[in-house]
């Protein structure tokens, strides 16, 4: 069995002014090839104005087990949200 083509993650900017969004993955031998394949697989209906491809092996992801240490500290900091503060109606829009 021959070696498989590496896996790439594909990100597409849907419209000018929006950020790139992950849309899926594909196999390709190099970056130019990945862009070419991403064009065929993910933008057949003008879904984007810009494509990013990243070798999947180069992505570092947080582990589901780290959920508590990463996100729990935010639980008791509700004051970070504007709705924490009661502003009297008389003050008007703020």
């Amino acid at each position: 069995m021959t070696k498989e083509w590496p896996l790439w993650e594909v990100f597409i900017r849907g419209q000018h002014g929006l950020s790139h969004r992950h849309v899926g993955s594909l196999h390709a031998t190099d970056a130019a090839h990945a862009i070419q394949n991403a064009r065929d697989v993910y933008t057949r209906r003008k879904e984007g104005v810009s494509i990013w491809v990243v070798p999947a092996a180069d992505i570092t992801a947080s582990s589901p087990d780290d959920k508590e240490s990463l996100y729990d500290p935010a639980d008791d900091k509700v004051y970070r949200h504007p709705t924490f503060f009661d502003i009297p109606d008389d003050v008007g829009a703020m």
Partner: peptide, 26 residues
């Protein structure tokens, strides 16, 4: 042609989804 190309695309989306479970395309 466009329809058949879509079917190829659908196959590719699904193969990639299967690959996230630890099986290879080949």
């Amino acid at each position: 042609l466009a329809k058949v190309q879509d079917e190829a695309g659908h196959g590719l989306y699904l193969y990639c989804a299967a690959e996230t479970l630890g099986v290879s395309r080949d």
